[in-house]
Nucleic acid binder design. Structure first.
Lengths: 335, 335
DNA sequence: CTGAAAGCGCTTACAG
DNA sequence: CTGAAAGCGCTTACAG
């Protein structure tokens, strides 16, 4: 069978506890003994059994990442996986492992979270917005379980979460347009009910207003985020009595429609009409011309989340906190 | 502290072993005792400590998923995450958990795998092609560690792997074109050195040859998989002396270039020129007209991989095996 | 059908 | 500086 701490102890002629102390770097061990034990470890090619360690220490060094993991998820929601990678990277750096859990098939809401807590199979939990339910939230709070949520939960101010600041994104977009001298800028958004779209719009309109260039109501358009709707909206805007000099697209699909409309109308970009889009993915790479983008460092958001939970684990008295990340402007050829 | 098996035993007035047997469904327990124990479990809201169980049983019920998890990975390689979801789903169904491990930052190749084996932190391992090295392969074989590799490793015939059959994909594409009556079909591929592109081309040309409609050499074009190259290639093909009636695009980016060229040339699709592409993602949704696609059920491939490793775990004598998945034809408006 | 006991492989007060 | 011993919370032959 596999070599155990006993074998090492025997080989080094010391007790099991001494071996354990050497492995864990206790300072009370004499250099000579430590060296002898290290030799034995090397000679026997010993590696501590991770399960035994975790069991004896009552800490798993494992974090659960809770999310939705259905079919097509990777295509529909690549951001979630990018965040996951960021979280993983940070956890790994600190010696934690990461286990994935899908909450979609729970028979009872909160089932997974209560199981994780009850079976003590993880030291902490990272919850992606798509997997957050009120049940999960109250279980976590009731057990004071170390956690961080990706995305503002909207309810409960006792949870620890991280989110991106879409309002600020809108502001950055507006500032860029203004700095280019495009005072007549339109905004093509997604559905009026879409929270992200709302936030971005708010950031845009607020900034224009503050600069003294109020965006007229007819220059703010809502769509179903389809290329077709964005296409028609663009044509309509540009053939109106007061055509905008530039367009801010709330997402990539809209930008695809806008770019195509500009091409069909023979408008030179950015000389005649400029545009800008939020997000680099999924389509900004195939939009012509390569657009200016207000992007979010999604991976970094995952890193921040991972870092926060590690810090909470190392320092349980750490306060509940909420924070947001900054958007980034990447200049392209469309402004 | 948390309630343990002892508390349940005390409450039910039985021994710890009896409680354990009830939990594990041993048939030797009398219904009366079982009921009493179940009551106590409910009353105390007892859940076995997963770590203790795993430790006592010497099985982790955990599988490691080894891959590359860098920044932008989710955007550059969504397929990998789709496979991951499939694997996860299947593992979860069988009661296994899944831990992610990134091999990119190993100081020594094979470090991660040897650690997983040495620390016994997983019962088995799923290795994505991007994380497979010769070191990993030989460690796995040396330790006879339960594994499955996603993607044909190309070396060693002792490994267990699963892959997609791109040759068959090419065949399906060709058969579809022939069934539409497009006997003069061109193939626009990626780089000549790209293995997937080669396989697909081989499937296409082989099938046409067998049907008596050999594809002329000038109708097989290699590109750098850029839209621009595909665009020029299309124009060239269609303005040649012997223009093809249809085009098979080796990937989505090529299809984008082809579709755009057809649009600019004013060709009616599929009446004048038809085309077809491999893969639904990332861009087939934004190609006009919506193309016919030869797709792969990537999620299902993950499911198959997960299923295989579970079966190997349950039946260690299961033979080494290699197998491939079937492509699927999704008709669109381009053929 | 049930239970006492050994054991899984470590960690960690505690004593010396 | 080192070690004997208890303990982490279960499982599982084994005896009865």
């Amino acid at each position: 069978m596999a070599v155990t701490i006993r074998d090492v102890a025997k080989a080094a002629g010391v007790s099991v506890s001494t071996v354990s102390k050497v492995i864990n770097g206790w300072s009370t061990i004499s250099p000579a003994t430590a060296a002898r034990v290290q030799d034995a470890i090397r000679a026997l090619d010993y590696t501590p059994n991770a399960r035994a360690v975790s069991f004896a220490r009552k800490a798993t060094m494992n974090i659960v990442f809770l999310t939705s993991l259905g079919k097509e998820e990777a295509y529909k929601n690549p951001h979630m996986f990018e965040i996951m990678c960021g979280v993983y990277g940070e956890l790994a750096k600190h010696g934690y492992s990461m286990t994935l859990i899908d909450t979609r098939k729970e028979a009872v809401p909160g089932e997974m979270v209560s199981r994780i807590i009850a079976t003590r199979s993880a030291d902490g939990i990272v919850i992606h917005g798509s997997a957050l339910s009120r049940e999960n939230a109250s279980l976590i709070l009731a057990h004071q379980f170390p956690h961080i949520i990706i995305g503002n939960p909207g309810f409960s101010n006792q949870l620890c979460w991280i989110d991106t600041n879409h309002l600020l994104g809108g502001q950055f977009a507006a500032e860029h347009m203004l700095s280019c001298g495009y005072e007549r800028t339109a905004f093509i958004g997604g559905r009026k009910t879409d929270v992200i779209s709302q936030q971005r719009q708010k950031g845009v309109t607020g900034t224009f207003l503050k600069s003294g260039h109020r965006i007229p109501r007819e220059h703010i358009v809502y769509t179903d985020s389809s290329r077709e709707a964005a296409y028609s909206a663009t044509k309509e805007l540009l053939t109106s009595e007061n055509p905008p000099r530039a367009i801010i697209c709330e997402n990539n699909t809209i930008a695809l429609g806008v770019a195509r409309a500009l091409e069909h109308m023979g408008k030179k970009v950015p000389e005649e009409v400029a545009f800008l889009t939020f997000d680099s993915y999924p389509y900004s790479a195939v939009i012509d011309p390569h657009p200016t983008v207000i992007d979010i460092d999604v991976y970094d958001m995952g890193v921040q989340a991972g870092n926060t939970i590690v810090r909470k684990l190392e320092n349980p008295s750490l306060l509940v906190q909420q924070f947001t990340t900054l958007p980034i402007l990447c200049k392209g050829k469309s402004t």
